[in-house]
């Protein structure tokens, strides 16, 4: 008698009714982020930073006669840099945080596929970004000084910012999947952010020569910034500078590819057991 024949309970019916698991996970994550307060705190910090940056920039502009388009670009650039940081941090907390709080195992014990769990968490991790962009609008409109620069800024900012935020949120989740503690995950995420962000602050002279130009092109944050600057400040067209979007786009595809194809099905209760999940 085989093992299967030794019991007399028929197999359970397949899942087919009810909401898809990713949307359930998304709802729960959104509740925890926005009602639990984590996202609210991050967005408040973002608002303060954006406000301070805008205030300092506008004050300087009066002294240095910075043109409105450049003010719009600088504000948008700041909004994107902070917005994607929020995505990165939220992603970095998503799995290791649950692991640390002891809530991950219960989730993995359900018949839900790991990919659906990751998808729900990923969408929640990027949820602060639209709000962050919306909060930047008043500043963009103000600095446009009656012109239409804010509209172009919102359009291209939404596009480039979304590419970067999705990619960095995915990268944060990858770090989170492979970290046993939330502290490790956060520190690694911060180091990654700094590694990408610092080059954007280098003086122009540091980005000359083959190596400098290469760094500028392959760093998705830097390349995205360059694209926005050319399109918003210098009135250049997409056709002329679309190649600068390659780095953010490739970065996004790579990050999400690794996240959903490789890492998601391998999520474990403990990050490093050196063992395979069933």
């Amino acid at each position: 008698m085989s093992l299967e024949q030794s019991v007399d309970v028929p197999r359970v019916r397949s899942r087919g009714e009810g909401r898809p698991a990713w949307s359930l996970v998304l709802s729960r994550e959104l509740f925890e982020l926005w009602v639990g307060g984590k996202a609210i705190v991050l967005v408040i910090i973002y608002s303060i930073l954006l406000g301070v940056t805008a205030f300092v920039t506008s004050n300087n502009s009066e002294l240095e006669l910075i043109p409105p388009k450049e003010l719009v670009f600088m504000t948008l650039s700041t909004a994107i840099a902070i917005g994607l940081f929020i995505g990165l941090v939220t992603g970095a907390d998503s799995i290791s945080g649950e692991r640390e709080r002891g809530t991950l195992e219960a989730l993995l014990l359900t018949p839900t596929s790991r990919r659906q769990i990751v998808l729900g968490k990923f969408l929640a991790a990027v949820s602060p970004w639209p709000l962050a962009l919306a909060l930047a609008y008043p500043y963009l409109a103000l600095f446009s000084q009656g012109g239409q620069a804010w509209a172009r800024a919102l359009l291209w900012g939404a596009f480039v910012g979304s590419l970067l935020t999705l990619a960095f949120a995915g990268l944060g989740m990858l770090v989170s999947i492979w970290s046993d503690s939330n502290k490790t995950s956060m520190v690694v995420a911060l180091v990654i952010y700094i590694a990408f962000y610092i080059p954007t602050q280098w003086a122009g002279a540091a980005q000359t020569g083959v190596t400098g130009r290469l760094f500028k092109r392959v760093n998705p944050m830097e390349a995205g910034n360059h694209f926005l600057e050319k399109v918003l400040v210098n009135n250049r067209t997409l056709a002329e500078f679309w190649l600068w979007l390659a780095a953010p786009a490739v970065f996004l595809v790579l990050t999400l590819g690794v996240l959903f194809v490789y890492a998601a099905p391998r999520i474990r209760v403990e990050a490093w057991t050196g063992d395979k999940r069933a």
Binding site: F31, E32, G36, R101, G102, T103, E105, A106
Partner: peptide
């Protein structure tokens, strides 16, 4: 599980 955690809110 032995160390089951709960979302608090």
């Amino acid at each position: 599980p032995e160390s089951l955690g709960f979302p608090k809110e």
